[in-house]
Design a protein around this nucleic acid. Sequence first.
DNA 1: TCTATAGATTTACACGCGTAAAAAAATTAT
DNA 2: ATAATTTTTTTACGCGTGTAAATCTATAGA
Lengths: 342, 342
Amino acid sequence: MGRKIKTMEEFASLSGISRPTLSKFFNDAQSVKKSTRLKIEQAIEKYDYRPNFYAMNQNRRKTKNIGLVVPNLTDPFFAGIARKLEELIVLSGYNPLLLSSHGGPEQEIANLDSLRSIKPAGVLLAPLGRASNVQKLKDFSALVPTVLFDANVEGVGEAFFGSDNHQSIGLMVDYLARTGEPPKFFEMKDPINPNAYKRRAAYVSAMEKLGLEPELLQVKGDGWNFEEIGFASGRQIIQDSKYRGATILCSNDRLAIGLLSAAYESGLRVGHSAECDLRVAGHDDHPFSRYTCPSLTTIAQDYDAIGERSVSEMLKIIDGANGIAERSEELFEGRLVMRTSA
Amino acid sequence: MGRKIKTMEEFASLSGISRPTLSKFFNDAQSVKKSTRLKIEQAIEKYDYRPNFYAMNQNRRKTKNIGLVVPNLTDPFFAGIARKLEELIVLSGYNPLLLSSHGGPEQEIANLDSLRSIKPAGVLLAPLGRASNVQKLKDFSALVPTVLFDANVEGVGEAFFGSDNHQSIGLMVDYLARTGEPPKFFEMKDPINPNAYKRRAAYVSAMEKLGLEPELLQVKGDGWNFEEIGFASGRQIIQDSKYRGATILCSNDRLAIGLLSAAYESGLRVGHSAECDLRVAGHDDHPFSRYTCPSLTTIAQDYDAIGERSVSEMLKIIDGANGIAERSEELFEGRLVMRTSA
DNA sequence: TCTATAGATTTACACGCGTAAAAAAATTAT
DNA sequence: ATAATTTTTTTACGCGTGTAAATCTATAGA
């Protein structure tokens, strides 16, 4: 149809709709009468016009952008959650902006910084945890509506949604204790993730509740290369014959994947059947835990629920009368996934 | 200090630098004299000013944004490549915008569409391949400088950089044939990825070159859930006793991961030592291939090189006099990673 | 039919920065 | 020191849209 339309003015005269009405429409299609909405949509189709992104956002009170920051996209767990959240954001008529902190607190701050210049309507943040620069997170969340997910940081953001580690670890400990040797807890000595501390505490309390002696296998290791840590430390632990016949509950699946690899290498048989030398369980239902050898018994986090709740809370805050409601928190239950490793 | 600076005008009067000079600086810090650059940087530090992103990009000839589209962020291989590319883009003073197509051609087009409205200086695209809407890719690349990586689509983009499947598969076939039973090739019947076709052809030609009979194990399966496909099909294949003692080269590591899982389940011993029932090799050096049971012998793609070349070519095109140079292509050699599975 | 009202139009200005051109100042070369 | 060159300043306009206020128009309820 002739040449390309560049401005809304032009589009207005061609479509027979006034520019302010068009502006309203592009801001929120539902805010105009149905008949005009249809007329506009037809015209858009016909002339293939779309407003200039930059001019559009320059003077908007709130943009339609929502930031999405995860600690590490290389971790399939976060890649999965991010995908889910992106989908929900798009469905709500917003524009997701995905950023990964690559495991580093500087990158996390840099991400928030670059988001700030984009003036997002809100930000969904899964913080690094221990490594995070808490003060800067607070400063940020004071400026833009922020909802935390996966990992909590006290005093940051208007809401937090995550997994109920107490429930899920309790469930797993219970299952393991009922079906064989009670579990020892395999974890990093100084975890970066706040969930790890909760899981440790949950393990101890679950064991005590059952009248059993908790035993922590705390291994050294820095960074995000959990599989390697699980592998290297697991190798050492496994050599100790006192762990023959033991049950090992890992703080997360990635550690378990490393541990399973070490066990395989040592020729140990892992599984829940009688002739096995070891039982291993994990937590998170990592996409690959189905294909480990043997397949990994674990806890599936309900991240559909976490995602949906996070996004809906975000929208509520954005639309909201900015009534300084108190910080809301909700934890979702995990589900036991019984496979063959325990 | 005082209150927050909002406009460049204000920042100009406070810093004692004229606004056009500031504008130049923010566009390219190297374009102003060193002494003024330092003065500006100090003032930025002091007043914590940063230009309005939207106003800034509205009238710029070229923005500083570079789009980065990968087929599937859930695949750790692409997550890794994306991370590398992001890093290189930032280092070059540009702003990466990461989008995943989630395995779907509609999403791929939607991604390019939303990138178009951001008027990026260029786009680095790893296309879905067979599933891609080629015409729309062409239309897009006619409007925006586009560099393809990982997978090639003829006639799209100004350059392509990827792996030399011919070399890498040849290398692997050679290795496997020298060290035991020559390999059969395990792959999907109708792969989505163009590399898969090249690998198939490379396998056949490598076998023939050695005077050996190629044998293709083509299994059904759609989508991106390669592990599941490898697992389910692998299970069937393995039951057939004629594959006892065989060597199986998988078209990619994710298929191999599934196959290894199936082999484990069936009690088959996989590995290169004499007492094993099966040898399995992969391709890509997936982050987890180190922790499979047994660890996976595979080919490591040189994606540092692919990434660097892609970004540097992109920059050349962006800066370039737009001289309609011919489409450049370069393939990088893979490296044999010997582990225990073959 | 009249009126109340939601929705559309007209008019006009604002936003914050890019950029061009000419003049002035600072630096470098001769 | 002077001339040539580079860099900065001054001045001024444009970009495409948001938004406000007043006015007009369509729709619905009585």
